[in-house]
Design a binder for these strands. Structure first.
Lengths: 215, 215
DNA sequence: TACACAATAGGACACGTGTCCTATATCTCA
DNA sequence: TGAGATATAGGACACGTGTCCTATTGTGTA
């Protein structure tokens, strides 16, 4: 809790090879504890314990806890983006089919324990920590970008405004399901919720009419 | 941090009048700090300070921090339910109109700073604290109950299963929007997202077909 | 006016926290 | 092999935490 006058945030010195492995191990351990015990119980000592190293050594790699947290969030965000890129590398019958695949991947992802627990933690953090807020922004901006691209292929005639709003709605709506169908949640087993949601999204994208309430 | 062998949770003795006011004041202060500074910075000392009382006095009303948190969550949940009941006391042209009113209220509510910040905090807490999880369950079960009731009035022919799933989808989808249109969020000012969402929900309720993908 | 009880303050206690410092051990490469 | 960089352990430090205890003040009633 010691307050330093200059929180210089001197980044970890990533001495190659062994050092890189340690860093990866530390990040993994941090994520494990965060998911298992929650942010309140995430301490440098618990992380060091999980890794089987000393607090001093941990401090060698991350001189600030905030730095470690930052690195973790970055790593998670990168992994997420890479997975979506991977999905989209496949071939699809139509843009709508590709959209469905991405949506199904996200649904499947938010069912995993990691995502179910980690993301709400991130959402809460984002309300009080600037860095978490920035990463969240970047993450969902990217996700919306993917949606926008695909929606535009399905409905090239739609104004950009409407496409953006549709993408935002899909993103927001999907994320909300984390709280109900995520790992350990009440509706975890009910796969029909997913079907209902995705069918609704696809129909919305296919039939959305900009201004008039009826089409 | 002292670990007691018997965390007896001896409830606060609500000596009437003055005591009740204090309790209300303490809960309000707790909520203020939770929303302003986040759960990580929510300490008994900060709460006592916000109230202008001593830690000893705070301890007189809530002998455990968990007890205080529990009381706060209960109070918030009660307030939320009362507001929905209040909304529904009005008169409506149709069940669909009533549903729209409830949906609009929830959207308006999740735009307030209190809800925008408090709920993600609750979601994160629910993954690690049993009591938060229970209250969340009760809260959303109630919300879904309202939705189910209204959906059934609109579509009496639908099987109960489908009605439940529709209600769940509405609930989940709405909550997700908190992260994007809530107070201080990027799309706070874009009211058209709300219109798009609610229009989609109402059309879904009006035209949902149980099994066949096309109707 | 006394008396019981509610309300309050203040401090002690044991412990957990992030950060820092210093001394070794281990590795890498000239 | 030896020198210099990297990696590691262990402990000290100052401080924040929840909980508990005791003494004092306020308040309403017999």
């Amino acid at each position: 809790m010691r307050q330093t006058d200059k929180p210089e945030e001197r980044g970890r010195i990533a001495g190659s090879d062994k050092g890189q492995d340690r860093i990866a191990q530390i990040l993994a351990a941090t994520q494990t504890i965060l998911i298992r015990d929650g942010y309140a119980r995430l301490s440098l000592r618990s992380i060091a314990g999980e890794c089987g190293i000393s607090v001093g050594n941990l401090n060698y790699y991350f001189s600030r806890k905030s730095e470690l947290l930052r690195a973790l969030i970055d790593a998670v965000w990168q992994g997420y983006v890479e997975e979506i890129v991977e999905i989209r590398r496949g071939s699809f019958a139509s843009p709508l089919a590709e959209l469905e695949s991405v949506l199904r991947f996200i649904f499947q992802d938010l069912r995993t324990r990691d995502t179910t627990v980690f993301f709400p933690e991130l959402w809460a953090l984002a309300n009080h920590e600037d860095y978490a807020s920035e990463v969240m922004d970047r993450l969902y901006t990217y996700e919306r970008g993917v949606f926008q691209e695909l929606i535009e292929q399905v409905r090239p005639e739609l104004p950009a405004d409407d496409i953006e709003r549709l993408a935002l709605h899909l993103s927001a709506s999907m994320e909300g399901h984390t709280l109900f169908v995520g790992a350990g949640k009440r509706f975890e087993r009910d796969r029909k919720v997913e079907d209902l949601a995705i069918r609704t999204y696809l129909e919305l994208v296919g039939s959305y009419a900009p201004t008039a309430p009826e089409n």
